[in-house]
Design a protein around this nucleic acid. Structure first.
Lengths: 352, 352
DNA sequence: CTGAAAGCGCTTACAG
DNA sequence: CTGAAAGCGCTTACAG
């Protein structure tokens, strides 16, 4: 059973195809009686305007492109909360009747795919498909490539990368505030030797978390020790390495804020290997609140990001650009400190 | 800068649009010199045929639809390995120049979205977009709805659900064999009281894992005790509840095979709460090998599924249907037992 | 090997 | 309120 076409509906209803089209696009301009007849017949035959034809004619499809580079140089790389992001994105987009097109990525630039090495390939794809806009998901080091998208004029919203352009915006957690809340929690527990394991240099959320850390340390009246600032890369192994370095210090920290849960877990492993007990000998706070945070032992206190919120906000932002709503600034999502067992309780620490 | 059209290229090259089109679709039919001229000009202007127009004309887009129900009745539901599946799917599809369209889902059936309650909505969408086929991802209880897709005639490949239809197939782990390997490992370690925590009744992988368990128990010469078969639902909490029930038995098991890592973690928690040590007092094997498996303490021995492999196989299967290759049967993926610390070592158990 | 023409299924000024 | 017509950008028999 092939799809019914507008022409068939028109004939069955004794109207022109133009009228059928109007029923679906500007229903208020067509006589109520005709409209209902068309709607009824269309309903019976399961008719809906063909999307390819519609996109060709209007130069606007009901699809938003997703740029997510899976052929990433870093092999085992995984996005910390892709599924939640997609859930939020998809459901918010669905509410507007939009689908999400995961654009093919191809190493070479021939064929259909594009690659981040060549952003115009993606922009081209977007135009050829009449996409309404693009959602850009950072896989760690795409900031530069994203800048090119933002300049293209196409509605773009980046997640976790601050881009700027005629039709571009981004959504990001309030990373500085989140880091601050972690440090304050630690300081409030009586710690004065609080170190941090950072994300990779150049990464915006990573940098913001560092400033948040610095600011909170200062505000707590604690000394800012550069040897308490160890560079990681968000991955677990780097957390382990960083923790070892911290533990080797003459005056090792009693508390550590890791800029990702993965690194926090790595740090936990390192601490355990050194015979330290968490939280008794070492307090630990992570960032993200991914699933493993609640499953490690002790369960990790962490700065939770609003994962589906990224998707919802991104969807809202593209839709706003498409419908030409007033342009709003970047979306900054609040974080929330989730207190579990990796820092002990206040009372426990009073004893210290 | 709007996209260049075929007409512009044609004019610049002094040929007809038909020729330009041929250069991209049947290059061998056009004179080499002309072809190269067109290709060069097209390259300079970044021209590529518009996808909407092409799809309208050929009735075939370069998109595969993804049916993934996020508005699932089970609120906190997450697919255990969606990201890996998508990575495999996307990269294999990309190799064929296909994109992945995540179809909008809408609770109500109006608007653009469809819902699993109404599979024809999706099939309709597929036709309106001229999708090459559909990949169906089970969110726990979609088997029935998927049957409807399979009957539609549209190329469909389901993940983790055995569907059948004129143009449908599926990819699934060898769940029975996987469960068997878990039980054999436990039996090999000297356990004779091996219980299992199952997935939800009716779920095909869950059922297959149960048969695998039964078969292996039998083959190990152990008695099949119905009280050692406790029903779970793949979620963590059900693992905890099931474990409590097992521990309350007059003759509690010394080893448990949980049909998912989540349930294994739940079981681990319950065992710990009862003061049991894992693996000393209780050996535990999970299924899936998701990230938490390696992060819990003790690290979980588990039956690993080839997660990206699902995506790759699904992509291959749809592409084969689209290109009309000989129809192959369902793809059964091998599993692999990953031995970590939750079962102890053979020697440790010899002492027992 | 190449062009003119029809057609894919819709939308939207333009008349009436 | 409605229809005839043009156009969106491509592909593919059909002639030549």
């Amino acid at each position: 059973m092939a799809m019914a076409t507008g022409r068939e509906i028109a004939e069955l209803c004794g109207v022109s195809v133009a009228t059928v089209s109007r029923v679906f696009n500007q229903p208020e301009t067509v006589n109520e009686e005709t409209r209902e007849r068309v709607l009824r017949v269309a309903g019976e035959l399961g008719y809906r305007p063909n999307e390819s034809a519609r996109a060709l004619s209007t130069k606007q499809s009901t699809m938003i492109g997703l740029v997510w580079d899976t052929d990433h140089r870093r092999p085992g790389w995984r996005h910390p909360y892709l599924q939640d992001l997609l859930i939020g994105l998809k459901s918010a987009l669905s509410a507007h009747g939009y689908h999400l097109l995961m654009l093919a990525t191809s190493g070479d630039s021939r064929a259909v795919g594009a690659s981040l090495a060549d952003p115009v390939g993606y922009v081209n794809l977007a135009r050829r498909h009449h996409l309404g806009g693009l959602v850009l998901i950072d896989s760690g080091s795409d900031a530069e490539a994203f800048e090119a998208f933002a300049q293209s004029g196409l509605p773009c919203v980046a997640v976790d990368v601050a881009v700027d352009g005629p039709n571009a915006t981004y959504v990001m957690s309030d990373n500085a505030a989140g880091a601050g809340s972690a440090v304050r929690h630690l300081a409030g527990l009586g710690h004065s030797r609080i170190a941090t394991i950072t994300g990779p240099p150049g990464n915006q959320p990573a940098e913001a978390r560092i400033s948040g850390y610095r600011k909170a340390i200062r505000e707590a009246g604690l000394p800012l020790r550069e040897d308490y600032l160890v560079t990681g890369d968000f991955y677990r192994a780097s957390g382990t390495a960083a923790m070892r370095r911290l533990l080797a210090l003459d005056e090792p920290p009693t508390a550590v804020f890791a800029a990702s849960d993965e690194m926090a877990v790595g740090a936990l492993l390192a601490a355990r290997a050194e015979g330290l007990r968490v939280p008794e000998d070492l307090a630990l706070v992570g960032f993200d609140d991914i699933e493993i945070a609640s499953v490690v032992d002790p369960a990790l206190t962490t700065v939770a990001q609003d994962k589906p919120g990224f998707g919802v906000a991104a969807a809202k932002a593209v839709m706003a650009m498409i419908t030409g709503a007033d342009r709003e600034g970047p979306v900054i999502l609040p974080t929330q400190l989730v207190i579990r067992d990796s820092c002990g309780s206040t009372s426990a620490h009073d004893v210290r």
